[in-house]
Design a binder for these strands. Structure first.
Length: 572
RNA sequence: UGAGGGAUCGUCCAAUGGUAGGACACCUGACUCUGGAUCAGGCGAUCGGGGUUCGAAUCCCUGUCCCUCAGCCA
């Protein structure tokens, strides 16, 4: 069902291209880069990808596709103290799952460590970089503040030869971590702090997940990123807003070094979603402190979590297109994401009947021992999905919610004396209610059926106001169903006031585990991640850990529930 | 208070001097063997103040608010 179809804009939202695509189109038009378009998605392998990354992935791969260009996957692995192979594997899996393909263009910034080092020496030779002996504290003091200019490092006028010697010895491991850095010689008075002689190499005696112990000096982001882009022939380097301050530095390195090209950095606003936290630090905290079951907990906004929750790649791509691309900071309403899955699943998910909170119903006048196979439509939105047969017998389960002993106004499901339709089966009328003598709880219903209504219509033309889903008790399969709700109870949990933690805003009811749910037998052997619509309930998918002898389903999203609104409204 | 960005329906995105439009959300109604889906309709915005113009979200002036930057993180 999930295709590798690229995220090409469908006609209905090609109204006007976003500002990034507008720039790219103009460049192509003007013949820049010989009309080539080449982008890249550059994650740091220090965490799992989340829905926010999906926007960037969709933009970078999407733009490349639309302009007949290419998009590389490049791991920005310049800080071995924070990165790990676990993440490089997971990130690739997630991007592939989303439906994007970098073909043979999988790169790492660490692929370029050798060349980056040479670029650094070239800068030294030009007198545009120097080895600085300032301690981290002193460097901060010399840097100045937002309103005061910085002061030159005492080592700023160090001769080229000495810089070269020192830098080579840094590389050789002669100096302690933190004792020296290589800095670009730009302008300590610059009102743009990132231009105040930024560090371009630091000493880190940590083995790297790819280069091992080959290096003990590592390039900083600003230096590595622009040069990696240039080396790969990137034409448009699309990044998020917080790098606007670094734009001048990006250009400075490329302008002062002999590089094969000069990519254009374009900054856009990252995606924010309400009711979730998106920072890697906070997501990690949720995982490490056990507030969720893991990076792929279905309540997590990670791609792994969304996948396990039952979100489809197509729905996430659609979402990324619908939210658009701009420079204004935005917080997208999570209801749009939910709309996108429902919209996709409505078209593609097979319908099935499943009872979440079973109430036993005995059909008194239905012959004992008889089983009928009822024809049921697999997907009314897609005739090619065909039909299946669902067993019907004398004892069935219906949803507890579908019966009220004392029905409120506008409630038109089952109640004493009332007639309703069983989907694809018969009309039944409630003739008796059995209660627990102690608690008074309704434990069983007795009904009669009208044999002439088989298939769901009465020959005399009488109508019923409700159609209920049901499952034959003798044929039902048991399952655990996990009902998920938003992880946080407030719109902006990540923006906690002083002295508070986002942990305080966790929704205590974000997971409700239902056991003893009764499902129609057709779901028994469905593989993990199979999507279903449980009719009248919502979209569910087979959990990764589900087994035939222990079925587990996750609720992806509930169906729109008009009755719940009516009832809610009448309470108010 | 330095520098760089940004302000349009509740939310997100359009309109680049010519009727402020779409989507989500919300509310009505129609239809329905899913109170789903679908269909029709409704609600609803240009940050403030000046100016230019026949005409301004758009251009000019001015003010306000918000975001980012003082890692040897990315």
């Amino acid at each position: 069902m999930d295709t590798k179809t690229p995220a090409v804009s469908s006609p209905e939202h090609t109204s006007s291209p976003d500002f990034v695509r507008t720039i790219v189109a103009q460049d192509v038009q003007a013949g820049k880069n010989q009309g080539r378009v080449h982008t890249r998605f550059p994650p740091e392998p220090n965490g799992y990808l989340h829905i926010g990354h999906a926007k960037s992935i969709s933009l970078n791969f999407g733009v490349a596709q639309e302009f007949g260009g290419l998009c590389n996957l490049r791991f920005d692995d310049t800080n071995p103290t924070k990165e790990d192979v676990e993440y490089v594997e997971a990130i690739q899996e997630d991007i592939r799952w989303l439906g994007f393909d970098w073909q043979d263009r999988l790169f790492y910034a660490s692929d370029y460590f050798g060349r980056l080092y040479e670029f650094a020496e070239e800068l030294i030779l030009q007198g545009k970089a120097y080895v600085c002996d300032l301690s981290p504290e002193d460097m901060r003091a010399y840097r100045g503040t937002l309103t005061e200019p910085g002061r030159n490092s005492p080592n700023r006028e160090r001769p080229v030869e000495e810089n070269l010697d020192l830098f080579r010895r840094m590389k050789a491991g002669e100096f302690a971590e933190g004792s020296r850095t290589l800095r670009a010689r730009i302008d300590m008075q610059s009102p743009n702090i990132s231009l105040r002689d930024p560090v371009i190499y630091r000493i880190l005696k940590t083995p790297h997940h790819r280069t091992g112990t080959a290096w003990c000096i590592y390039p900083m982001y600003d230096f590595a990123h622009c040069l990696s882009d240039a080396l790969e022939g990137i034409t448009h380097s699309i990044c998020t807003l917080e790098f606007e301050n670094n734009h001048a530095l990006y250009d400075w390195f490329l302008d002062n070094l002999k590089v094969p090209g000069h990519p254009l950095q374009i900054e856009f606003a990252r995606m924010n979603l309400n009711y979730v936290v998106m920072s890697k630090r906070k997501l990690r905290q949720l995982v490490e402190e056990g507030y969720v079951a893991g990076w792929d907990d279905p309540r997590m906004p990670t791609l792994a979590g969304l996948r396990r929750r039952g979100y489809t790649p197509a729905s996430i791509r659609e979402f990324c297109e619908r939210i658009g691309v701009a420079k204004a900071i935005s917080i997208v309403d999570i209801s749009l994401l939910e709309f996108c899955v429902r919209d996709d699943l409505n078209k593609h998910a097979l319908r099935v009947m499943g009872i979440l909170r079973p109430l036993k119903v005995v059909i008194d006048n239905y012959p004992e021992g008889t089983v009928e196979e009822m024809d049921a439509i697999n997907n009314p939105e897609d005739p090619s999905a065909g039909t299946r047969r669902v067993p019907f017998s004398r004892v069935i389960y219906i949803e507890r919610d579908d019966f009220r002993e004392d029905p409120p106004p506008k409630y038109f499901r089952l109640a004493p004396g009332r007639e309703v339709r069983l989907r694809y089966a018969y009309f039944i009328k409630c003739v008796g209610v059995v209660k627990d003598p102690v608690t008074g709880e309704v434990v069983e219903l007795h009904c009669t059926y009208d044999p002439s209504t088989r298939g769901g219509d009465a020959p005399d033309g009488r109508k019923v106001k409700a159609t209920l889903h049901w499952v034959s008790a003798a044929h039902a399969v048991d399952a655990q169903v996990n009902l998920y709700d938003r992880l946080f109870g407030v719109q902006d949990p990540g923006n906690e006031p002083e002295g508070h933690s986002f942990i305080e805003y966790l929704n205590p009811n974000s997971l409700e585990i239902l056991s003893g749910c009764k499902l129609e037998p057709s779901v028994l052997n469905a593989p993990a991640l199979t999507h279903y619509q449980f009719e009248r309930q919502g979209y569910f998918c087979v959990d990764a850990e589900s087994r035939p002898d222990k079925l587990i389903f996750n609720r992806t999203a509930a169906l729109r529930d008009t009755w719940a609104r009516i009832e809610e409204g009448s309470k108010a």
